[in-house]
């Protein structure tokens, strides 16, 4: 095992988030059993007060989850010097079988967290806590993910063996290799562009539709997810090639390095924000029919949609710009 401050911090954060969510989960069960908004009993009063604590706890927990996602990738990047064969984060994530699951879990938890926070915000706007049960059911769904993340991440760090010769981005994200990553890499740029801008169009249309007609929020969220997946695939399949100016380098992490002008941050930050806002918008737009939060939905959902659309547009513009300014010309690959 390698014991470094960043690893300790990551484990510490996961453990604390886990504890916080367990505390909240225990309370969620109690609340789901006993909640009765019409009762004026001592117990109900206590439960209502407790919800304040839970929302504060979870806001902090999900905010830290976001930072820990960044720290995780950054740490993987910086540890690449300690493993034979690792050149960037890919190699370090490949050190054992727990690396990638940890990353994916962190991303999923981050997105679920934003949905939860959006619901929580909306719920607090209604005087009768209309979403409280849904909110806490959702929390009980997130809890196992957080616990799994803690377990998987701890195994990942504990089983890091500095003697393992790992494989790096060059071999994992290559057209000839096997596996999901390789298949994404070998996706032809033409298909990737269709997927990217097709889903982009879908997002724009459903977003505009929502803004005009106040319906179809869920479709907007779903197209947001599709756009996210398509965007990640196109980054691997062709955008990265243009950033590296190298026809065979498909790594999604090396673009975060200083040598490539931190291009990755200009792509990932708007993309992640846009997707999470799209998810939040969709998840609150569902509750338009509940009278006590109707007005809040009318105010906030369009705002979120606007913001999400702006950020998606920024992402597409930047993606196009990185391709346009590159010196690489790939006429030969464009059959």
């Amino acid at each position: 095992m390698l014991l470094s401050p960043a690893i300790l911090a990551l484990i510490l954060v996961s453990a604390v988030i886990c504890l916080m969510l367990m505390l909240a989960g225990g309370f969620a069960i109690q609340l789901l059993r006993l909640w009765d908004i019409n009762s004026g009993s001592e117990l109900q009063l206590r439960l209502e007060r407790r919800t304040y604590l839970i929302s504060t706890l979870l806001t902090w927990a999900f905010a830290s989850e976001l930072i820990s996602l960044m720290l995780f990738i950054y740490n993987a990047e910086s540890m690449s010097g300690q493993f034979v064969g690792a050149m960037c984060a890919t190699g370090v994530l490949n050190v054992n079988e727990w690396g990638w699951p940890t990353l994916f879990l962190k991303i999923v938890i981050f997105f679920s967290g934003t949905i939860w926070l959006a619901l929580n915000y909306l719920d607090n706007k209604g005087f009768d806590y209309p979403l409280i049960r849904i909110k806490y059911y959702l929390l009980l769904l997130i809890l196992p993910m957080v616990v799994t993340e803690f377990y998987v991440q701890t195994r990942y760090f504990l089983e890091m063996d500095p003697d393992v010769i790992t494989s790096c981005c060059g071999s994992l994200f290559s057209v000839d290799a096997k596996g999901v990553a390789a298949e994404v890499s070998s996706l032809s740029p033409r298909d990737a562009i269709f997927a990217l801008y097709g889903t982009g169009l879908l997002v724009m249309l459903s977003g505009t539709w929502y803004l005009l007609r106040k319906q179809g929020g869920l479709i907007f969220s779903l197209s947001g997810i599709a756009a996210f997946v398509a965007a990640i695939m196109s980054i691997i399949s062709y955008i990265s090639l243009y950033i590296y100016e190298h026809p065979h380098h498909h790594c999604p992490f090396c673009i975060l390095k200083s040598g490539h002008d931190y291009a990755g941050y200009t792509l990932y930050v708007p993309l992640f924000l846009a997707t999470s806002l799209a998810l939040a918008a969709g998840s609150i737009s569902l509750w338009r029919r509940i009278p006590s939060v109707n007005s809040a939905v009318e105010i906030y959902a369009p705002k979120l949609v606007y913001l999400a659309l702006i950020l998606f547009n920024i992402f597409y513009a930047l993606a196009a710009w990185w391709v346009w300014q590159s010196n690489l010309s790939m006429g030969s690959i464009w059959q």
């Binding site: 960043a6 830290s64 930072i67 820990s68 720290l71 950054y74």
Partner: peptide
């Protein structure tokens, strides 16, 4: 940034 982020977490 890694150090500053780690420090923040600690």
């Amino acid at each position: 940034g890694l150090q500053i982020a780690t420090l923040f977490f600690f």
